[in-house]
Design a protein around this nucleic acid. Sequence first.
DNA 1: AAGAAAATAAGTATTATTCTTATTTAGTAA
DNA 2: TTACTAAATAAGAATAATACTTATTTTCTT
Lengths: 160, 160
Amino acid sequence: MSKKEKDPKIQEKITEFKNLCNALGLKLTHQRLEIFSELCRSVDHPSAEILYKRLLKRISTLSLDTVYRTLMTFKEYGLIDKIETTENQSRFEVKMSTHHHFICKNCNKIYDFDWKDFDESALPDNLSNIGGVIHKSVIVYGYCNACDEKKNEKVNKLRF
Amino acid sequence: MSKKEKDPKIQEKITEFKNLCNALGLKLTHQRLEIFSELCRSVDHPSAEILYKRLLKRISTLSLDTVYRTLMTFKEYGLIDKIETTENQSRFEVKMSTHHHFICKNCNKIYDFDWKDFDESALPDNLSNIGGVIHKSVIVYGYCNACDEKKNEKVNKLRF
DNA sequence: AAGAAAATAAGTATTATTCTTATTTAGTAA
DNA sequence: TTACTAAATAAGAATAATACTTATTTTCTT
Ligand SMILES: [Mn+2]
Ligand SMILES: [Mn+2]
Ligand SMILES: [Zn+2]
Ligand SMILES: [Zn+2]
């Protein structure tokens, strides 16, 4: 039985998830519910392994394979997304309204951001030579503020 | 010794590569030259393994590890890029002028395209809360024309 | 031509993900 | 409820992707 969520947004997503499982004929297992809930709560686009470690606290008998398998299933049914990265561990997030990703070159954290102007902009003409576009997104790279602060701390330690 | 390149663009990149190796103190080995040249010629953003298979025809003693190690080195020195994908095999390309990627949801081919308007557009303000941006790029998903044609062929076979 | 430092090949190791199978569970209908 | 069936899970084995170790070879310099 999943704990009560404080955040009503997450509560809502979970209710929606339960309904979808029913509608899609997916059995609503304890594992699926916990995996989905944990991913809902995660703001950091976790890997299967990170999710697994977090979930072990709730389901001590959980297997890593179940996490992988369940994420695959969720992806097949369009409940979650696999994120584009250059890392070799895949990372995931629950399907959300259109948004984009800032990836820190130092800590590899992935932050969400909105960019309405981009969402509304027309794609370039030359794309029709390649194919028909279904979805577009932006990835930006840089150093996150958290990392900058840490770097400054270090510099200050050296200076004083 | 690398074969003469027909394409002067590629020839030029290879010459530049040789100079850069010198400048950076990277030994210009047969393997490095062939790996770089092959990646230059590749329009398909190949994986290490694909590159390795192509290169075996030229260097029969090449080891897959050398391909991985060399690609890592090239990336460290900024000569190539690792591409963002949702696949679990990394894919690569030689560093080129700013461009973006169309990824086919069916065949996973990655096509390059230009989008000057995007390149010149300002990022959204909310990004400063996250960090400082160094690089931005677009990924679009869809079905490439090649895949569409194949699908139509199949449909026609069924109809006639 | 000789020597030092760096790079390679081969084999091994590790990491990430998937498969196999026996057991358990969710959903359903009596 | 209970019993049944199909689907899902856990555990461990297997595979795939990438990285490490070390003896040998190569590049670059002198
Ligand atoms: Mn996101
Ligand atoms: Mn490209
Ligand atoms: Zn960071
Ligand atoms: Zn295609």
